[in-house]
Computed example of a mutant assay.
Amino acid sequence: MNKGLLAATIISISYSSAVFASESCDDTALNGYMESIKSEIGLLSSDVKSGNNTSASHRVDTVISYFKKSRNEIPYKFSAEKLQGNKLEEQKAEYIKVVDDTIVILEKLEKALESDDMTQVKSLFGQIGAQRKLGHGSFKANC
Protein backbone atom coordinates (compact mmCIF):
# COMPACT_ATOMS: atom_id res chain seq x y z
CA MET A 1 0.00 0.00 0.00
CA ASN A 2 1.21 3.47 -0.83
CA LYS A 3 2.58 5.27 2.28
CA GLY A 4 0.94 8.52 1.15
CA LEU A 5 -2.44 6.83 0.88
CA LEU A 6 -1.99 5.23 4.30
CA ALA A 7 -1.09 8.59 5.86
CA ALA A 8 -4.04 10.28 4.18
CA THR A 9 -6.38 7.54 5.44
CA ILE A 10 -5.10 7.86 9.01
CA ILE A 11 -5.43 11.64 8.94
CA SER A 12 -8.91 11.38 7.41
CA ILE A 13 -10.09 8.92 10.06
CA SER A 14 -8.60 11.01 12.86
CA TYR A 15 -10.23 14.17 11.55
CA SER A 16 -13.63 12.59 11.02
CA SER A 17 -13.54 11.03 14.50
CA ALA A 18 -12.93 14.43 16.05
CA VAL A 19 -15.62 16.10 13.98
CA PHE A 20 -18.27 13.44 14.47
CA ALA A 21 -17.46 12.45 18.04
CA SER A 22 -20.42 12.51 20.36
CA GLU A 23 -20.67 15.19 22.98
CA SER A 24 -19.06 14.31 26.29
CA CYS A 25 -20.19 15.45 29.71
CA ASP A 26 -17.30 17.95 29.85
CA ASP A 27 -18.40 19.63 26.61
CA THR A 28 -21.83 20.79 27.75
CA ALA A 29 -22.98 24.28 28.66
CA LEU A 30 -24.22 22.85 31.95
CA ASN A 31 -20.75 21.60 32.81
CA GLY A 32 -19.39 25.08 32.10
CA TYR A 33 -21.98 26.66 34.39
CA MET A 34 -21.21 24.16 37.13
CA GLU A 35 -17.48 24.83 36.86
CA SER A 36 -18.19 28.57 37.17
CA ILE A 37 -20.46 27.93 40.17
CA LYS A 38 -17.72 25.86 41.81
CA SER A 39 -15.21 28.69 41.34
CA GLU A 40 -17.61 31.36 42.57
CA ILE A 41 -18.60 29.32 45.64
CA GLY A 42 -14.91 28.98 46.52
CA LEU A 43 -14.42 32.73 46.21
CA LEU A 44 -17.65 33.32 48.12
CA SER A 45 -16.39 31.16 50.96
CA SER A 46 -13.12 33.10 51.02
CA ASP A 47 -15.02 36.40 51.13
CA VAL A 48 -17.09 35.18 54.07
CA LYS A 49 -14.01 33.92 55.93
CA SER A 50 -12.31 37.29 55.45
CA GLY A 51 -15.42 39.14 56.65
CA ASN A 52 -16.15 40.77 53.30
CA ASN A 53 -19.89 40.15 53.26
CA THR A 54 -20.52 42.85 50.65
CA SER A 55 -18.34 41.07 48.11
CA ALA A 56 -19.81 37.73 49.17
CA SER A 57 -23.32 39.06 48.57
CA HIS A 58 -22.35 40.10 45.03
CA ARG A 59 -20.90 36.65 44.42
CA VAL A 60 -24.20 35.10 45.51
CA ASP A 61 -25.90 37.11 42.74
CA THR A 62 -23.41 35.69 40.25
CA VAL A 63 -23.99 32.13 41.48
CA ILE A 64 -27.75 32.60 41.25
CA SER A 65 -27.39 33.79 37.65
CA TYR A 66 -25.45 30.62 36.77
CA PHE A 67 -28.11 28.46 38.41
CA LYS A 68 -30.82 30.27 36.46
CA LYS A 69 -28.94 29.54 33.23
CA SER A 70 -28.40 25.93 34.35
CA ARG A 71 -32.12 25.52 34.89
CA ASN A 72 -32.64 25.58 31.11
CA GLU A 73 -30.03 22.90 30.42
CA ILE A 74 -30.45 19.14 30.31
CA PRO A 75 -27.94 17.08 32.29
CA TYR A 76 -25.70 14.94 30.08
CA LYS A 77 -26.63 11.93 32.22
CA PHE A 78 -30.14 11.99 30.73
CA SER A 79 -28.84 11.41 27.20
CA ALA A 80 -26.10 9.02 28.35
CA GLU A 81 -28.78 6.87 29.98
CA LYS A 82 -31.05 7.36 26.94
CA LEU A 83 -33.95 8.52 29.10
CA GLN A 84 -37.22 8.98 27.23
CA GLY A 85 -40.90 9.56 27.84
CA ASN A 86 -42.21 9.76 31.38
CA LYS A 87 -38.87 8.85 32.95
CA LEU A 88 -37.18 11.74 31.15
CA GLU A 89 -39.92 14.16 32.13
CA GLU A 90 -39.75 13.02 35.76
CA GLN A 91 -35.98 13.48 35.85
CA LYS A 92 -36.21 16.92 34.22
CA ALA A 93 -38.80 17.99 36.80
CA GLU A 94 -36.62 16.70 39.65
CA TYR A 95 -33.57 18.48 38.21
CA ILE A 96 -35.48 21.77 37.96
CA LYS A 97 -36.71 21.33 41.55
CA VAL A 98 -33.16 20.86 42.85
CA VAL A 99 -31.99 23.95 40.94
CA ASP A 100 -34.94 26.03 42.16
CA ASP A 101 -34.48 24.87 45.76
CA THR A 102 -30.81 25.81 45.56
CA ILE A 103 -31.69 29.26 44.27
CA VAL A 104 -34.03 29.75 47.25
CA ILE A 105 -31.21 28.80 49.63
CA LEU A 106 -28.85 31.21 47.85
CA GLU A 107 -31.39 34.03 48.15
CA LYS A 108 -31.61 33.34 51.89
CA LEU A 109 -27.81 33.35 52.05
CA GLU A 110 -27.71 36.75 50.39
CA LYS A 111 -30.12 38.15 53.00
CA ALA A 112 -28.13 36.58 55.83
CA LEU A 113 -24.92 38.12 54.47
CA GLU A 114 -26.55 41.53 54.18
CA SER A 115 -27.74 41.34 57.80
CA ASP A 116 -24.42 39.88 59.04
CA ASP A 117 -26.22 36.85 60.51
CA MET A 118 -23.21 34.56 60.51
CA THR A 119 -25.02 31.72 62.30
CA GLN A 120 -27.53 31.67 59.45
CA VAL A 121 -24.74 32.00 56.86
CA LYS A 122 -23.02 28.91 58.27
CA SER A 123 -26.27 26.96 58.27
CA LEU A 124 -27.03 27.97 54.68
CA PHE A 125 -23.56 26.92 53.52
CA GLY A 126 -24.37 23.50 54.96
CA GLN A 127 -27.64 23.44 53.03
CA ILE A 128 -25.82 24.40 49.84
CA GLY A 129 -23.42 21.49 50.42
CA ALA A 130 -26.37 19.13 50.86
CA GLN A 131 -27.93 20.41 47.62
CA ARG A 132 -24.62 19.86 45.84
CA LYS A 133 -24.51 16.24 47.00
CA LEU A 134 -28.12 15.72 45.98
CA GLY A 135 -27.62 17.26 42.55
CA HIS A 136 -24.38 15.48 41.78
CA GLY A 137 -25.68 12.18 43.10
CA SER A 138 -28.83 12.42 41.00
CA PHE A 139 -27.78 14.18 37.82
CA LYS A 140 -24.01 14.03 37.28
CA ALA A 141 -22.87 11.43 34.77
CA ASN A 142 -19.88 9.25 35.58
CA CYS A 143 -17.61 10.01 32.67
Rank of each mutant, 00 (worst) to 15 (best):
N2W: 02
L6C: 06
A7T: 10
T9P: 01
T9E: 12
I10Y: 04
S12I: 06
S12R: 02
S12K: 02
Y15A: 12
Y15T: 11
S16Y: 09
S17A: 13
S17T: 11
A18L: 15
A18R: 12
A18P: 00
A18W: 12
A18E: 10
V19D: 08
A21I: 04
S22I: 08
D26R: 14
D26P: 00
T28K: 04
A29M: 11
I37F: 03
S39Q: 09
I41N: 02
G42K: 11
G42Q: 12
S46H: 06
D47P: 00
K49G: 02
N52T: 03
N53C: 09
A56M: 05
A56S: 09
V60G: 00
D61C: 03
D61G: 05
T62F: 05
T62M: 06
S65D: 14
Y66K: 14
K69Q: 10
S70D: 02
N72E: 15
E73K: 09
E73N: 10
P75D: 09
A80E: 11
A80C: 06
E81Q: 14
K82G: 04
Q84F: 05
N86F: 11
L88K: 12
E89I: 07
K92V: 14
A93F: 08
E94Q: 14
E94Y: 10
I96Q: 14
V99I: 15
V99C: 07
D101H: 04
D101Y: 03
T102N: 08
T102E: 03
I103Q: 01
I105V: 15
L109Y: 01
E110T: 06
K111I: 07
K111F: 02
A112P: 00
E114F: 03
D116M: 06
M118I: 09
T119E: 15
Q120G: 00
Q120F: 01
Q127T: 07
G129I: 04
A130P: 00
A130F: 10
A130V: 07
A130L: 12
G135S: 10
H136W: 10
H136C: 12
H136E: 15
S138V: 04
N142P: 01
